[in-house]
């Protein structure tokens, strides 16, 4: 009878743990003795080339790669900070908060541009702009928006075409969506006007980029706002169905950031991986390439639009501030 309960427990545990992760995969080094645990918000397909290249350089390591949404990454890591060695996320504000609250190790002598690191603990390694992605076929007759203002006008003039066919992040669920939304709101009043119009046109809300891009390709939505262009580019199979547009007036560019867990069991190996990420080695052309654009290739122009790594990011994580923002966002988008 006891064995039965243990069996039930094991089954339940394995089922729940499998359910908790969007994806998880063990990348094996050719002569691995230790396993580095990566907690990440980046899809496995996008990040796999980066890991594989690292394992070629360091065959003595395995990498166990856990993927979940950026908001969950934050919560999971806060509740069990000893379960992971390296945390990678697109939600810069949440990552910064983790560092501020003492969850990260400092890497003293890692040379990295000042604008791309915080406290020698949080290191940006990609530059990914927020973009507008459209369905090519649907936009054959419509003008393509090059800015938010144009997008507002296009939506206004063609409400019938867009009714129920617009997608964006549900900022209540997606950490990255919330970051983009708050930065947009900071930058311009036109964000709220756009949200109101999108709300009036029955916008569909997504938790993650992947689903949104799939729906774009299938034509169930024809325009998606504030999507990561890099994810769209990653889908080479959809290249002829969708098109990525970058708003010209106030582009928001996000840095994917990584930190080493304070309670890591493999500090040296974690540091090795972080040094690899902050180098440009993973983005060099090879057999398998990642669509992630390296920070090392940043031009002066893109640099200006980068969301800066500063304590101000934590403001929107404030309980009262978040409640206000979500309330306003809901009243605009959900109506």
């Amino acid at each position: 009878m006891r064995y039965f309960y243990i069996l039930i427990c094991c089954l339940w545990l394995s089922v729940t743990s499998a359910e908790e992760w969007e994806e998880q995969k063990l990348f094996k080094g050719s002569s691995a003795t230790q396993t580095l645990r990566l907690l990440s918000s980046t899809d496995t397909s996008v990040f796999a080339p980066v890991i594989e290249k690292f394992l070629l350089e360091n065959p003595t390591l395995n990498i166990h790669y856990f993927v979940t949404s950026s908001a969950t990454v934050y919560q999971r890591f806060r509740t069990s900070p000893d379960q992971f060695d390296v945390v990678i996320s697109s939600a810069m504000d949440l990552q910064l908060k983790l560092v501020n609250d003492g969850f990260a190790n400092q890497v003293e002598d890692l040379l990295h541009p000042d604008w791309a690191q915080w406290r020698q603990s949080l290191f940006g390694f990609t530059l990914e702009p927020a973009s507008i992605v459209v369905n090519k076929a649907a936009f054959a007759t419509l003008p393509k928006p090059q800015s938010r203002q144009q997008m507002i006008e296009i939506l206004r003039t063609n409400p019938a075409d867009f009714q129920g066919k617009i997608g964006t992040y549900d900022v209540r669920q997606s950490g990255l969506g919330y970051l983009f939304a708050t930065q947009d709101a900071r930058a311009s009043e036109s964000y709220w006007r756009l949200m109101e119009i999108m709300g009036s046109l029955d916008t569909r809300l997504y938790c993650c980029s992947g689903d949104m891009i799939e729906d774009l390709a299938s034509g169930s939505i024809i325009i998606a706002y504030n999507v990561l262009g890099s994810y769209a580019m990653a889908r080479a199979d959809l290249a002829d169905k969708i098109e990525v547009l970058h708003p010209s007036e106030f582009p928001n560019t996000m840095m994917r950031t990584a930190l080493i867990a304070q309670e890591t069991r493999l500090p040296q190996q974690a540091e090795l991986f972080l040094r690899y990420l902050t180098s440009s080695r993973w983005s060099e052309p090879g057999q398998t390439e990642t669509p992630l654009p390296s920070l090392r290739t940043a031009s002066e122009n893109t640099r200006r639009s980068i969301i800066s790594l500063e304590p101000g990011l934590m403001i929107f994580l404030d309980r009262l501030k978040r409640r206000l923002f979500i309330r306003e966002w809901e009243s605009a988008v959900i109506q």
């Binding site: 900071r186 500063e310 304590p311 101000g312 990011l313 934590m314 403001i315 404030d318 009262l320 501030k321 206000l324």
Partner: peptide, 15 residues
């Protein structure tokens, strides 16, 4: 209710 819309600068200035 007490509503508190903390300005971005409140933390930004502490950089």
């Amino acid at each position: 209710d007490v509503v508190l819309d903390i300005p971005y600068a409140a933390f930004s200035m502490l950089s």
